[in-house]
């Protein structure tokens, strides 16, 4: 292949080695798009849908990887992959997240896609989001100005929109672990590698029912009710949804399926 006669477009790649360096670069170049597993960002690049001035490659920032357990909460690094979320012993601590991870793409995607990426993209269909919502997730974000923590439902502000300031990065997310029973179910038109037509996570803890659904509203939303309302809970969940018709499914089907999923999830968690 011959050398290009002229230079190509102005995309730049910044590769920090530490979190501090990453925050500094993000502060200096707020338009830099963070890229971790690349499973969303690269599709935008490959199909010419985005030409950001810079990409902030977070792969080399060790502080974003892995997970830890402190004071009854589990902290997940933004760079935790779906494959890692399916591994023992994390899968036993957060079974719904592990079940959700198993529904994501194929093994190749689960080896690269990350929880932080799912939060950053903030898609209504993000598979990690419903399990995190029912687990009371708090998102840890940071910038050169400092760190802050905000509940996941406040972090997700709209379809593909989150509450990050332009100089902030997602550091991780922490959840209450090991409490109650939980499960995750996802409907897709084939038996592997699908974007959720509709999905649901349910957690039953301390006499309370918590459900969160995906692909049935502008953001994955949380529905809570006391355990005594279990029989009407599927209706409550369906009623809380505001689904639309799109290429993946109809609003009517999504609402219907949500009701079925909620009933089945209750059966599993109350059995």
């Amino acid at each position: 292949m011959q050398e290009e006669a002229t230079t190509l477009g102005a995309v730049d790649v910044l590769t920090p080695r530490t979190l501090e360096e990453a925050l500094r670069l993000k502060s200096e170049t707020p338009g830099a798009v963070p890229i971790q597993g690349g499973t969303d960002v690269m599709v935008e690049l490959n199909f010419d849908r985005a030409r950001p001035p810079a990409l902030l490659n977070l792969n080399e920032v060790a502080a974003l990887r892995g997970w830890s357990r402190t004071n009854g909460r589990v902290s997940l690094g933004a760079g935790l992959t779906y494959a890692e979320a399916m591994e023992h012993p994390l899968a036993e601590l957060l079974p719904a997240l592990a079940e959700a991870a198993r529904t994501v793409g194929g093994p190749q995607i689960r080896n690269r896609g990350t929880v932080g990426g799912n939060l950053g993209t903030a898609s209504p269909a993000g598979d990690a989001l419903p399990p995190l919502l029912v687990a009371g997730a708090e998102v840890n974000v940071a910038s050169v100005r400092g760190e802050r923590t905000l509940p996941l439902h406040e972090f997700l502000v709209g379809p593909k929109r989150n509450a990050l300031a332009e100089d902030e990065l997602i550091v991780g997310v922490s959840v209450a672990a090991g409490a109650g029973r939980e499960t995750f179910l996802k409907v897709g038109p084939r038996n592997a590698m699908v974007i959720a037509v509709v999905s649901l996570a349910l957690r039953v803890v301390d006499g309370e029912l918590l459900a969160a659904f995906g692909s049935a509203g502008p953001v994955p939303a949380l529905v809570r009710a006391p355990l005594e309302e279990a029989s009407s809970f599927p209706e409550q969940v369906a009623a809380a949804a505001s689904p639309i018709d799109d290429v993946r499914g109809t609003a009517a089907y999504r609402r219907h399926a949500l009701r079925i999923l909620a009933g089945r999830a209750l059966d599993r968690c109350l059995a």
């Binding site: 590769t15 490659n57 093994p107 995607i109």
Partner: peptide, 18 residues
């Protein structure tokens, strides 16, 4: 698909610079 640091990944989703 390639093995990237020993892990199975889609090379279309790895930025070359990564």
């Amino acid at each position: 698909s390639v093995l990237y640091d020993g892990k199975l990944v889609c090379s279309c989703l790895v930025l070359a610079a990564q």
